[in-house]
Design a protein around this nucleic acid. Structure first.
Lengths: 152, 152
DNA sequence: TATTGTTATACTCTATAACTATA
DNA sequence: TATAGTTATAGAGTATAACAATA
């Protein structure tokens, strides 16, 4: 009885996580976006009008890194930087109309991605998996909706 | 009724996978290893005596990348390059005694890592999760034991 | 001429530190 | 002097292409 070598769930999580990230990157590249940009876009959608400092803290990334990300989204016309008249050092970052549309397209891409990744499982099994993963993520103190790729 | 924003399992996999990879990297850095090096070490343990070309194909990585990885493991005395007398272009790569010991230490680190990651779940729940993840990985055609970080 | 392994080079991503403009 | 944002610089990691040794 020589079974296949056993890999634990932690390894499977790493393996599947890298795979999921890669497939998602392929999907959003059709929208002209990188995964970090999509994370920032969602952060801006959640908290419109925040400064870059606040967004950086929210994502757990050095503020310098945000500059290039914000630049990229702004050049595509997805977001707007507006100077704060009371304190002209700050920007307030907002989604543009086009940015709203991209958010909708992003939601469709995420749904298709979810369906592709979960193709092997029944509806009940998907719910079970979702529940277990959610509890593990909470136990590991992961911020909901924030990918650790931003953190040091 | 304004529930929290719902994230799918695909996102949770990406999030947890990045987290698991990061924590595992911290653990193996105590052994002086990087995650790619541990993957190569395990590949050599599975198939001792293979050439670097074969190992590269097994991991799905460009052969040039293997050179630096093999160099690092060799300089730490974990593996040995032996020239093949029949075809002197090839090396045959083997684990040293010290490499065997490191593999044992790696197994202990992986077990501790697994335990830490699964802390939120009962024994039955862990088995359920393992089964579901294994089926998803198989459906997505992931090679057992090979992290996609090697692939292009 | 083909193949194994190597080196050289370039590119991407990210972090750290120095700078500017406002306060 | 302190803070928001920016730019400059450097480092890690990886891929592509050119190369040397052997077949």
């Amino acid at each position: 009885m020589q079974g296949p070598p056993a890999f634990g769930s932690a390894f499977l999580l790493a393996q599947l996580g890298a795979h999921a990230t890669q497939r998602f990157a392929e999907r959003v590249s059709d929208l002209g976006l990188t995964p970090p940009q999509t994370g920032l876009l969602r952060a801006i959608a959640r908290r419109p009008g925040e400064s870059q400092q606040v967004l950086a803290a929210e994502l757990g990334t050095p503020p310098t890194r945000l500059v290039a990300l914000v630049d990229g989204l702004e050049q595509q016309g997805l977001i707007e930087r507006r100077r704060n008249p009371q304190d002209r050092r700050l920007y307030a970052v907002f989604l543009s109309d086009k940015g709203q549309e991209t958010m909708a397209a992003l939601a469709k891409a995420a749904a298709a991605h979810e369906d592709e990744m979960m193709a092997a499982l029944s509806t009940e099994e998907r719910a079970t998996l979702r529940g277990l993963l959610g509890r593990v993520a909470a136990d590991r103190d992961l911020t909901p909706g924030v990918h650790p790729g931003y953190r040091t």
